[in-house]
Design a binder for these strands. Structure first.
Lengths: 226, 226, 226, 226
DNA sequence: AATGAATGAGAGTTCATTCAT
DNA sequence: GATGAATGAACTCTCATTCAT
């Protein structure tokens, strides 16, 4: 921005901005509060059971305030999913998009995914029980599987089969992690990723390579809600 | 039976038995009617959405009659699942239990499963959306995977990993079949089973063997409800 | 009955009588079973709460059978009250009607009444909570109080006042006996009768006389129900 | 309060307070409306018969509004009883607590009680049919009877006997007043109190003293509901 | 924006009553 | 007479939604 411009009538501008920002922040903060609480609620009760009361009780807001932001629980669910998708992008996708090799990228993506599932129970629960339900589709993995098949490093009947196996197994693994929390301390997560890679037809050497890389820290993103 | 005994007060005995039998039959039939209708309803709406009205409308029974058999929709869901499990046992398990080779048995079981998913839309929808939810556990596959690992024909990190991949992928495949009905006419179902078998570490020859056998007819069992 | 008469054509008569008696007995027995069970049920739950299911469950009869005898719970309640009133007449009234002195008769009647209340919990509970509700009115006590006033042995403002005090106190005593079962072993019952007699204005000597008589055994009447 | 402080952001403060106060008042009034209507309904139909519809029809509130305040009719009954007990304290207890002589106090209390029963039909009906049912216990009378026995002015077998006679007779008197409204114009109420006092063993002079005092006006209390 | 009382449609549940066997 | 499955009206309870403050 042109510094000259910003200097014009700074007093008034500042005031206006301040009000706007405060207003926006408050709006944002309330919305963010609702959504973050919603993640917990949906993770615990699933996508359909929660009623508006669940959200207003956990957040402490008034009934009417809820309606200022969402007109029903479905809308809140959708917002929570979107928020989570952005979160995912920040947390995982950004870590692996620097990798050029699609096979390695797919492998590292899965490793980060299960790592996050281990580390963030609410996330895991939400994704396993709610998100899949809504039939979310991730394009990244599908594209990587296609590229892996083209390069010959993956050999599975079709990219769709590979995707179904990848996603189906990941979900099943998350369900198992939720049911048997003790597994988080074992190498189960590595083993499940290994199983998927075998299902995709990778060579043993490739699998060893994928597991030879250290795992990036998963950033806990602090988001602002639009 | 001693004919002399049967002659003792035959009138009363007959009356009592008759009433009892008639009553039981009527009970059974009504219960069966509700459960079979419930399968359709749950398949369409999922496990939570249906309300009692949905069942009484589709069966034509009175509101109170529903409560003569089930005290809430959850109980009906459970009964329906149990009924389906028995149905499954009749339909699939009995077909494959004659096979000695556990690897072949596992493969044929999966082939029959996806075949049924293709053939019976309601079954597929119910199993995909409802049954898995309840965390149903099939012991047969787990046992076969264990045996396959022991014999060296399967090579996957653990039986649990193998089971998670098998079940997770099967479910994902069912979801895809429901979303893309056109796939039923392709070889997608064979390909997905092939993918799973590769994930379990079978040799290509074994896979070919598994697909070389013809598929038994899936019997449509007529059941009586306890 | 003349034994000669009974000997006339005994075979046929016996048959006819037998059938009739058996039929009547069965009817009677079923009705009696319901009423005797009803006494317990009403005693426990009060007059309004019980539902038909309570009676058919406790008696083991079928739903329809109930309606062969009573068309609703109110009718059963009424029948139970009538049955109890007859029972009371057999048990108490017959014991005291031989006494000529109305004051003594009233006193002995009350002593027997509280004695029965101590001995028969269900009777006590039924009478306290159900019977009074219906505003039952016993003429015997009222007449005796009137006669006692006329003879000068009772001195209370009016027979109605005396009756209200007698009955009100008796009921309250029954309620206390139900709440504090330990009192049954004390002389509370005598004391409460003494209090009533004092309220009716008797002399101390009269009271002593009343308590000097031994109490007749309360017969447990076995009734047949019409 | 510091006037400076009160000037700080008066708008917001005022608004918040205003809302809160308005809300509370509205709440209170609605609750009071329901309870006062409930007194009528319970008095007419007894404690068990009324259904929620009875209350929402008579008050004109919506079905859901009822549930904002009470979760079932039993809770409303309990609240009504509590409200009535407070009412009683205001109406009667406060009138007699200035009297030192326990015998006189007990007598005046009873006179006020039957006076209220005559004057307030709904109160009488509610107390007679509902309140006693719940086994309400008034400590005041029990204490006064004890003191009267200790001073030698009451002579009855025990304080409990005296209490049972007092309360039992009062209730019976209320029932009679409801059934025979004409009695309200007679001296029945004085006579019944006299009968009770005789039952407690008072001298005739004491009874005359008790009736020599004029009866205080029974205040019709206007209550606020917590 | 925030509040929360009021609303009433809709879902759940009970239970008296009927009736074919 | 006895049986008990079926019925549906009456009742209870929940919860999304509105709106004055």
């Amino acid at each position: 921005m042109n510094p000259k411009e910003s200097a014009v009538s700074p007093g008034k501008k500042a005031t206006v901005n301040h009000r706007t920002v405060v207003g926006k922040n408050r709006r944002s903060r309330t919305k963010a509060r609702i959504i973050e609480a919603a993640l917990q609620v949906f993770a615990e009760k699933g996508p359909d059971a929660p009623v508006i009361d669940d959200f207003i009780k956990i957040t402490g807001i008034a009934r009417g305030t809820f309606y200022n932001y969402f007109s029903n629980t479905a809308e809140l669910l959708s917002a929570t999913s979107t928020w989570l998708a952005d979160d995912l992008a920040d947390a995982i996708e950004s870590s692996i998009q620097v990798i050029d090799d699609p096979v390695l990228r797919h492998g590292m993506g899965m490793r980060l995914w299960v790592e996050k599932a281990k580390a963030d129970k609410a996330w895991c629960s939400f994704v396993a029980s709610v998100w899949f339900q809504g039939g979310f589709a991730l394009d990244g993995p599908l594209r990587d599987i296609r590229l892996g098949i083209k390069s010959g490093e993956f050999s599975c009947p079709s990219a769709e089969c590979g995707w179904d196996m990848t996603m189906g197994t990941m979900r099943q693994a998350m369900i198992r992690l939720l049911k048997e929390p003790g597994l988080a301390k074992t190498d189960y997560t590595d083993r499940i990723v290994e199983t998927i890679l075998q299902g995709l037809g990778t060579s043993e050497e490739k699998r060893e390579e994928i597991f030879s890389y250290p795992l990036a820290e998963i950033p806990r993103p602090t988001k602002t809600i639009a």
